[in-house]
Amino acid sequence: MTEDPAFLATTFVVIDFETTTPTGYPAQPIEIAALALRYEEGTWATVGRYASLIRPPAFAPVTSADTAQTGLTPEQVKQAPNPADALGALDRRFTANTRYLLVAQHAATEANVIHNQREHCPALACVDFLDTIPLAKHLVPGLPNYKLDTLLAHFSVPLPANRHRATADVDVTAEVFFRLINAAAETSQISDLAALVKIAGRTAKCNIPVQSGLFDI
């Protein structure tokens, strides 16, 4: 797989959000981190990195439960960029004529946040995902579960001190992704990028065709 031209031509962007979960509304981002990677000459090269706090809307304040989970406080996000500025700055890093795939642990979470914020990040919203969970299930069967901490323990990746902050979670998700790709390459279980996408891919909601009603007039 790591010799497949399509794989080598792809920029993999590991992404993670921290969010608030206001009642009656979708999750609202309060922090984002992204790590862009290319596989070059047998190793992974970092080709970009981005991180920002995000000021949530008034209906989605940082709660004590959020602080307990992430360590982020209302004061920290109060002066942060709004979603349009924080996500727009990341969106502008995605260039035309470059093949991208986003990588995330439980990609449905990140996919939903991005889709709900798509007006601020239209380029990002059109990038499909690889989910490390189905990839790990395929390559490392038999684990008690496929939570990130379980995968970190399996691959002997130390827990970061600031686990549940976006940058730390992106870094350790990348480490898991590296090990999964190595396992796939060593065992020849996945032959190319197309096979990888078939196992672990998730189509961005913006790329899913909308089916017209059968009796539209």
Rank of each mutant, 00 (worst) to 15 (best):
T2N: 03
D4K: 04
P5W: 10
L8C: 06
A9Y: 01
D16R: 03
D16Y: 00
T20Y: 11
P22K: 10
T23V: 15
T23H: 14
G24A: 00
P26S: 13
I32S: 04
I32P: 05
L35K: 03
L35A: 00
L37I: 14
E41L: 14
G42W: 08
T43V: 12
T43L: 12
T43K: 15
W44V: 03
W44H: 01
A45L: 14
V47G: 08
V47P: 06
G48I: 03
R49Q: 14
Y50M: 05
S52Q: 03
S52F: 07
L53W: 05
L53P: 03
P56A: 01
F59R: 05
F59G: 04
F59M: 13
A60G: 12
P61G: 06
T63V: 14
S64M: 12
S64T: 13
A65T: 14
T67Y: 09
A68L: 09
Q69L: 12
G71S: 00
T73Y: 09
T73S: 04
Q76K: 13
Q76I: 13
Q76F: 05
Q79H: 15
Q79E: 13
P83K: 01
A84K: 15
A86Y: 13
L87M: 09
L87A: 12
L90G: 02
L90R: 01
A96N: 11
N97W: 15
R99Y: 06
R99K: 10
L101S: 03
L102C: 11
V103K: 02
Q105A: 00
E110V: 09
A111F: 08
N112Y: 08
N112R: 13
N116P: 09
Q117T: 13
R118D: 00
R118A: 14
H120T: 04
A123N: 15
L124A: 07
L124H: 05
A125C: 12
C126W: 07
V127L: 13
D128I: 12
L130R: 10
L130P: 12
L135W: 03
A136L: 08
K137A: 14
H138F: 13
L139M: 04
L143Q: 07
N145V: 00
N145D: 14
K147I: 11
H154C: 01
F155S: 01
V157K: 00
P158N: 03
L159F: 14
A161W: 07
R163I: 07
R165Y: 02
R165P: 10
A166P: 02
A168G: 15
A168I: 12
A168S: 13
D171P: 06
A174M: 08
E175R: 07
E175D: 08
F177C: 02
F177T: 06
F178E: 02
F178C: 01
R179C: 08
L180K: 06
T187P: 11
S188V: 07
Q189L: 10
A194L: 01
A195R: 01
V197S: 05
I199A: 05
A200C: 10
A200T: 05
G201S: 09
G201L: 05
R202Y: 09
A204K: 10
C206R: 11
I208P: 11
P209N: 04
Q211Y: 04
S212R: 06
L214F: 11
L214S: 02
I217H: 15
